[in-house]
Amino acid sequence: KVSILSLFFFLLLGAALNVNIEPSPVISDLGSDVLLHCSFTVDTPSIDFSFLIVKWFLKGVVLMEFNDKITVSRPRMKMSDTEISKGNASLSISDIRIVDEGDYICSILYTPEKIEKTVSLAVKGNVISESKETDLVCSASGYHPTEITVQWLRNGQVLNDAKLSSLQRNPDNTSSISSTYTFTPTNQDKDKAYSCHVNHTALRKPIEEDILLKKILAGGSIGSTLITTFITWLICKLLFKLVTFIGHSFCCCSRTSRPEVSDIKEIPVSGEDEVKFTVDVSKFYPKEIQIHWSHNGKHLEGKTSEQHCNVNDGTYSVTNQIVIPERELKEKYQIKVTIKHESMEEPAVKEKTLQDPETTRFPTAQPATNITTQTFY
Rank of each mutant, 00 (worst) to 15 (best):
residue 1 K to D: 12
residue 1 K to E: 14
residue 6 S to P: 05
residue 19 V to T: 08
residue 20 N to Q: 12
residue 25 P to F: 15
residue 26 V to L: 01
residue 32 S to V: 05
residue 32 S to D: 12
residue 34 V to Y: 10
residue 41 T to L: 02
residue 42 V to R: 11
residue 48 D to K: 06
residue 53 I to W: 00
residue 55 K to D: 04
residue 60 G to D: 06
residue 60 G to S: 07
residue 62 V to S: 07
residue 64 M to P: 11
residue 65 E to C: 11
residue 68 D to R: 09
residue 68 D to I: 12
residue 70 I to A: 04
residue 73 S to W: 01
residue 75 P to D: 03
residue 77 M to N: 09
residue 79 M to N: 00
residue 79 M to H: 01
residue 83 E to C: 02
residue 89 A to M: 09
residue 92 S to W: 13
residue 93 I to Q: 03
residue 94 S to Y: 05
residue 94 S to A: 04
residue 95 D to K: 08
residue 96 I to G: 04
residue 102 G to I: 06
residue 103 D to V: 09
residue 103 D to T: 10
residue 107 S to T: 02
residue 118 T to E: 07
residue 124 K to G: 13
residue 130 E to R: 07
residue 135 D to F: 05
residue 145 P to W: 01
residue 146 T to C: 11
residue 149 T to C: 05
residue 154 R to Q: 10
residue 162 A to L: 07
residue 163 K to N: 07
residue 164 L to N: 02
residue 164 L to G: 12
residue 166 S to F: 10
residue 168 Q to W: 09
residue 168 Q to I: 15
residue 178 S to V: 07
residue 180 T to E: 02
residue 181 Y to L: 01
residue 181 Y to D: 00
residue 185 P to K: 02
residue 188 Q to P: 08
residue 190 K to F: 10
residue 193 A to M: 05
residue 195 S to C: 08
residue 204 R to I: 14
residue 209 E to A: 04
residue 210 D to W: 06
residue 212 L to A: 01
residue 217 L to F: 06
residue 217 L to S: 06
residue 223 G to E: 08
residue 226 L to E: 10
residue 229 T to K: 15
residue 229 T to W: 04
residue 233 W to M: 14
residue 233 W to E: 10
residue 237 K to P: 01
residue 238 L to S: 02
residue 242 L to E: 14
residue 243 V to P: 03
residue 246 I to P: 08
residue 252 C to V: 07
residue 252 C to Y: 01
residue 259 P to T: 00
residue 264 I to S: 00
residue 270 S to Q: 11
residue 272 E to Y: 09
residue 274 E to P: 02
residue 274 E to C: 06
residue 276 K to M: 09
residue 282 S to K: 13
residue 282 S to N: 10
residue 289 I to Q: 02
residue 290 Q to S: 09
residue 293 W to P: 03
residue 296 N to M: 02
residue 297 G to H: 03
residue 297 G to P: 01
residue 301 E to M: 13
residue 304 T to Q: 14
residue 305 S to L: 07
residue 305 S to K: 09
residue 305 S to H: 07
residue 307 Q to W: 13
residue 308 H to G: 09
residue 312 N to I: 03
residue 313 D to M: 05
residue 313 D to T: 06
residue 313 D to W: 04
residue 314 G to H: 01
residue 314 G to W: 00
residue 319 T to H: 02
residue 321 Q to N: 13
residue 322 I to M: 10
residue 323 V to I: 15
residue 325 P to L: 14
residue 325 P to K: 11
residue 327 R to Y: 15
residue 333 Y to C: 11
residue 334 Q to F: 05
residue 334 Q to M: 10
residue 337 V to E: 02
residue 340 K to Q: 11
residue 347 P to I: 12
residue 348 A to N: 13
residue 349 V to E: 03
residue 357 P to F: 04
residue 359 T to I: 09
residue 361 R to I: 12
residue 362 F to I: 06
residue 362 F to G: 00
residue 367 P to I: 06
residue 371 I to G: 11
residue 374 Q to R: 15
